[in-house]
Amino acid sequence: MFKDITLGQYYQTDSLLHRLDPRVKIVGTLAYIISLFVVDSFVGYLVCALFLFTMIGLSNVPVGYIVRGMRAILILLLITMAFNLFLTPGEVLVTIGFLKITKQGLSFAVKMAIRLSLLVIGSSLMTLTTTPNQLTDAIESLLNPLKRLRVPVHEIAMMMSIALRFIPILMEETDKIMKAQIARGADFESKNLIKKIKSLVPLLVPLFISAFRRANDLAMAMEARCYRGGAGRTKMKPLVYQGRDHGAYFILLAYFAVCIAIRLVPLPFLV
C-alpha cells in the first residue's frame, strides 16, 4: 500500500524539466507556492493550475502517476476541508443537525482544497524531476551565503539527501512489518482510536530499530568511502547555469508578475 505514495520519489525519465538546474526548480517551486497564496480568486487558481499542468506536460511524468500520489494526502485534504466548511462563520446555506455550512465556509473550503492540491502536486513535481543529490547540491549552493554565519550548510544538505534516499526503503519495510504483524493477528484497521494507537507499537518499535541499524551501517559505509564533511570535496555534477536556466528564470518572473497582477487588478466580471 505504501508503494502507492509517489510523493518525493524521483521519476526517472528525460525531459526539459529534468535537465533544468535544480536551483531553478527550487526557486521556482518556492515562487509557485508563494503565488498560490498571492492569488486569491478562482481566476488566479486557474492561472496557477494552467502553469502547473504546463510544467507537468514538460516533465514527461504521467499525470496518472502524480494523481495516484495524491491519495496519500486525501485524508488531510478532507479534514482541512471539513474544518473550513463547518467552522467558518457567515451566511448559513445548509444546516445538518448542529453543523452549519456557510457561504463563506463553502468558498473557503473549496479554495483551500484547490490551494492544497496545487501545492502538493507542485512540490512533488520538483522531487519527481530532481534527484535528491541534485536537490542537496542546489540547497547547498543556494544556502552557501549562510556558511559565513557558521550554519553547517553541507551537513544539512547531506542529511536531507540521505533522508530522501531512505524514505522508500523504510516505507517498504513498514509494509513488510505490517504484514508480518497482521500474520500474527494484529488489527491495524480498528476504529477505536486507543486501540489504533496501541496497535502501532508493534509496527513502530521494529521500524525505529531498523532505522537506527541502517543509520549505523550507512555512517560506517560513508566513512569507509572517505566521507569527512564538505571540506575538500569535489562535485561529480557541479551546478552551472545554462541558457535554458536563464530562460526558465525569466518565465518564472513573468508568471509571478501575472499572479500579482491578478491579485492587484480588480476584475469586476469575476468572483
Binding site: K176, A180, A183, R184, P202, P206
Partner: peptide
C-alpha cells in the same frame, strides 16, 4: 514466518 522474522520483535 516472514524473512528475517527477528525484525518484527518489539
Amino acid at each position: 514466518v516472514f524473512q528475517y522474522p527477528e525484525h518484527q520483535l518489539f
